[in-house]
Structures are given as C-alpha cells and as structure tokens.
Design a protein around this nucleic acid. Structure first.
Length: 536
RNA sequence: CGCGGGGUAGAGCAGUUGGCAGCUCGCCAGGCCCAUAACCUGGAGGCCGUGGGUUCAAGUCCCACCCCCGCAACCA
C-alpha cells in the first residue's frame, strides 16, 4: 500500500569542499525526500561522491597526499557538511567502495553479455576539462573544445572498449516520446532529444590502465580502466544493493527521481537509460515483469545560479561555503530563498539583498507577524489558550470575509502536494503565501476583515472562531512548509503549544492535514519572535 | 550557422494546453492599531526586444532579425 520513493543527487567530485552550488542540488533532493517522507512513503535519499576521476588524482597530488588518504578526508568533509546542514540523506555512496566495484562488475558483465561492448582502436580528441571525447563536429572553429578553449585537446590514440549506445538510439527516442515527463523541465527534454537525434554515437567506456592512475578495472581486462562516467552512473544501483543485496535492490529500484544539474543531462537522460536497456537484457534484476528494462522514472535538471550577478568562480572569490552561509542566516531561510526566489529548473541569481528582502517580507512580516498576532490575541482574550470552540473539525466560513474556510485549506493542501510531487517547490511556496482562497496573505486579511480585537467585545464566540481559524491554519502551514523549512516548521508547531514529534508519531499524514487538529482549549505558550527583523 | 540561457511596470521574476497582462519589493494615497513601525485597501506605472505571418483572438504558435548573459580554471 505505502508507496516508495527513491531520489538521488549526482555524486560529486571531491577535489574541493562543497560549495553553494552542490548545496542547492542537495537541498532540492532533501526537500523532495522530506515531502515524501511526510506523506508516509518509504523514502530513500541517496547522495555521495565520485572518486574514480582523474580530477581526484590531480587534487590529491596538489594537496601532496596519497590518493586514498585524500579521498577519505574529502569524503568525510562532504558527508559532514550535509549532516551539519541537516540534510536527511539515507545513504552516502562512495564510488571507491567495495559495494560499488561489485555492482559495476556485475553491470559491465551484463552489458557485455548483451553484445554491446566491443574493442576498437581509434584516434580522437579528448578534452580533460569535460572528461569526454569530442567529435569533429563538436569542436569550435579553432578545433578546440568550445567549453574549454584554453585547454589543449589530447589526441588520444588507443585501443579501448566501446559501448554500443547507437543500438539504443531509437529506443531512447521512443522513451522520450512515450513518457513526456521522463526529462523535466520540458526545455531539457527538447535539448536532449535533439542531441540524441543528431547523433548518439557509441561511447568509449574505458581507457588504458597505464595512462590513468585511477578507475575501476575492466572485468577480465587488467590493461583497461572503466571510464569515469560509465562507472559513476552505476552508483545509483550499487547504493541500493545491486550486486550485493538483491532483496534490497528490488525494494528500491527503479529510482523515482534523479536530480541533476543542467550540465549533465546528456549522461543521465541518454547514456544512462541506454546502459540500463543493455544490461537489463541479461540481468533479471533490471527487468520488469514483462522483461522490459526498469528505467528511472524521471530525471529533473535544475538550473545554475550566479552569485550577485556574476558567475561563481574561485578567482573572483565569490564561491560561497554553505557552512559559512548557515552562520549568516538560519539555513532554513537560505532553503526558502533558493526555492521561492528561483523557479525550480531555471537559472537564477544568489543575491544577498534579495535574501534580506524575502526574509523581511515573506518570513518576518507575513508569516512571523501573523503567528505572533494570532497567538497574542488568543492568549489575551482566551486565557492563554487556544480558543475553545465546540466543533473544530467542522469549522465553517466566517461570513463576509474572503477566507475560503476549511475547504480552501484542503484545496491548498492538494495543490501543495501536487507541486511537491512534480518537483515544483517554488509553486508550492507561492501558493502557501499568495494562494487564492486560503493563504498567509488571506489569513492576514481575515484579521483586518473581522477585527478580532474589536469583535471580542461584541461577539466572543465569533472571535473564538476567527482566532482558532488563524491558529489552525498556521499549524497546517507549518506542515506544508516542513519539507522546505523543517526547523522553522517545528518551531511553529511548538509555538502553537503542540509537540511536533508526537504530532508526527501519533498521527498519520491524513490526520495531520485534517482541519481541526489543533486542540481547542490547549495551552498557548508565550510567543517567541520567529524571524526577528533585520537591522535595527 | 559552436553550445546553452534570456529580453514582460522603477528593480527582481511568474505566466501550463493561444481567451481581459500577474507576483514580490519599491513609490503615492487611505485604513487599522491585535501584532515584529508589522497588517489591510486603493492607485500610479507595461507598444510583453523588433518586424512580419497564422487566428475571431498571440506574451503564448510560425518565420526573420536585434540585443544581453555564461562557456580558461573551480563548477550543480
């Protein structure tokens, strides 16, 4: 009955510590994972590190460290950064781990058995920057890599193993056709479709061992090492038991969502499904009941952002360390900014002025102030308690107001859930703040429309109804924003005199979001300022 | 013919299947006084980059063009 949700981030190169960009990706995955967990779905959230790269070798050499030592140190830094930021990952895969090597070996053999691996000698241009081969048509007018024009292309001439990606070109195009949501957002689907159409050539998937100082050995061929991308993608399988724990694997595969940056869609949307299609032919674990390949359900490519209008760059010195940022602002505020300000899937700008603006306006003024005024009035007029209304679950409309009542809140919940489900985090937040029949803005308006501070003298019962509505709506909002702002959500719940932990453990999701959950007559603690105003 | 993103109110951005142009901030004028000088209402402010085309109807679809941004390294 309960559905499962398996979400991944890309695995990161660890030639430096995490920065704000990788943090953005990871937070996005965290939000989606949390939204599914909240719904009571069995959720598995994977992140990790890509360690079989030439870049790691270079970085280790630069740091004057043994490769293994360097990798171990950096992997810890990455994992700990995510922990400190409260990222709720369930596993942390390192491609240097034994389990990964086992999975890769099994996968390679399955692909080989399918007849999609062959040896060939060739001479081609290899761009170290891209870690990728370039065909002549991909070079710029100076015959250099358009992405890395200052880097000399290596003219590589060697015998390598190749993956017959071209065998799957039609299948991939068919996949795009059949499942329009496979790649999100749509503009990325267009991009990748034209890439596959124009030429989805066979990939070289190994390099000569003597030329690289890292990489997983090709099964049965010690002279070759597996090309980093071919092994990296398999991490999504190895972390959930492929090659080591069949039962676990069956539980989680296929992935429900691979979250990636827009720069690596080629690998995830074309190469990866092709690899899986091939391996599935000779590995029942990768097959559906009908023998078709089990492919990830969706790949979502997010955009990049600039820092204060400029490209993130070390030489400009504007690379932001997420841990330092988390000192400047509560990290929940940063999370909110990321997904309120920047349409998920679009490029955006990381701008401190805008963070401050969002903080002041959306968080302090609209949300924080509402919570504060609602609690204060309730405490003042109702003896420090949540107003004791007779039948909270059947709360009716307050006549003469634009507040949509409990049904509008149900509708809002529905919208928010749909947005989370389709990874439109930005729209979920927009709806909570500015929605049409129930929203934080409308809740503030309800106060103006009913004036509880006057109404209390004439009609205490109606006042109780209004205040209960506000408090109960805030409880609902807390759970709506919990995936994005888990700490803030807890503080709101606590501020309403409830215990977030027991709310979660004693109620299922359906009960949580059912109107009337806030117990009438329960104690309201003295309000704390959730978002102090900035400046003086 | 390198690749990609984008040009919508003063700033920053939304605009799914074409159907009266929206949101946040800022500005102006009111209201309110419970609240974090917060909240609410009203208003000013747009040739939706340009020129064509399709259509009863185009920010949205088609064609052409102009302009801006990113593309050594770091890097989602």
């Amino acid at each position: 009955m309960s559905e499962k949700y398996y979400v991944t981030t890309p695995i990161y190169y660890i030639n430096d510590k995490p920065h704000i960009g990788s943090t953005y990706t990871t937070v996005a995955a965290d939000i989606l994972a949390r939204s599914h967990r909240l719904r009571g779905e069995k959720t598995f959230f994977l992140t990790g590190t890509d360690e079989n790269s030439q870049k790691s070798v270079e970085a280790a050499a630069k740091a004057d460290k043994e490769l293994n030592v360097y990798l171990d140190e950096m992997a810890v830094i990455w994992e700990n950064t995510w922990k400190k930021l409260g990222i709720s990952f369930d596993d942390f895969i390192r491609t240097s781990q034994e389990r990964h090597h086992k999975a890769v070996a099994r996968f390679w053999q399955a692909v080989e058995k399918s007849g999609d691996i062959y040896k060939d000698t060739y001479e081609r241009h290899y761009c170290v920057g891209c870690e990728d081969f370039k065909t002549d048509s991909e070079l710029n007018e100076d015959d250099r890599c358009p992405l890395h024009p200052n880097k000399d292309l290596e003219l590589v001439q060697e015998e390598n193993w190749f993956f017959k990606a071209s065998n799957y070109k039609d299948d991939i195009l068919q996949l795009f056709h059949n499942s329009q949501n496979f790649v999100q957002p749509p503009k990325r689907l267009n991009e990748i479709r034209s890439y596959v159409k124009d030429g989805f050539a066979d990939f070289s998937i190994s390099r000569e061992a003597k030329k690289v100082s890292c990489g997983i050995p090709v099964p049965g061929d010690d002279t070759q090492r597996i090309y980093v991308w071919f092994d990296a993608l398999i991490n999504y399988l190895s972390a959930i038991g492929y090659g080591t724990d069949d039962e676990l694997f069956k539980k989680w595969w296929p992935a429900d969502l691979h979250l990636v940056g827009k720069d690596i869609i080629k690998f995830h949307c074309a190469l990866w499904p092709a690899m899986l299609m091939s391996a599935a032919k000779n590995d029942p674990l990768l097959q559906n009941e009908d023998g078709s390949p089990k492919l990830p359900k969706q790949i979502f490519a997010h955009g990049f952002f600039t820092i204060e209008g400029q490209k993130m760059s070390k030489s400009l010195g504007n690379v932001i360390d997420p841990l330092e940022l988390a000192v400047e602002y509560p990290f929940d505020v940063v999370r909110y900014f990321f997904f309120r300000e920047i349409g998920f899937g679009n490029d955006g700008d990381f701008n401190r002025l805008r963070i401050a603006e969002r903080y002041q306006s959306d968080l302090a003024n609209t949300l924080g102030n509402l919570l504060n005024r609602a609690i204060n009035m309730s405490r003042k007029y109702f003896d420090g308690k949540v107003p004791n209304i007779p039948d909270p679950s059947s709360q009716i409309l307050v006549p003469g107001t634009s507040w949509g009542g409990k049904e509008a809140v149900d509708t809002l919940w529905q919208q928010v859930e749909e947005y989370y489900a389709s990874a439109r985090i930005d729209l979920a937040l927009e709806a909570i703040w500015n929605g049409e029949n129930a929203s934080l803005t409308l809740a503030n308006r309800l106060v103006e429309e009913t004036k509880p501070f006057k109404l209390i003298k004439e009609d205490p019962e109606k006042t109780a109804l209004v205040l209960y509505t506000l408090l109960e709506f805030l409880r609902n909002v807390a759970w709506m924003i919990e995936p994005v702002m888990p700490e803030i959500a807890k503080q709101i719940i606590t501020g309403l005199g409830q215990d977030p932990k027991s709310e979660l453990s004693q109620h299922n999701f359906t009960q949580l979001k059912t109107w009337g959950g806030l117990k009438p007559g329960s104690d309201l603690p003295e309000p704390k300022i959730l978002f102090p105003r900035l400046g003086e």
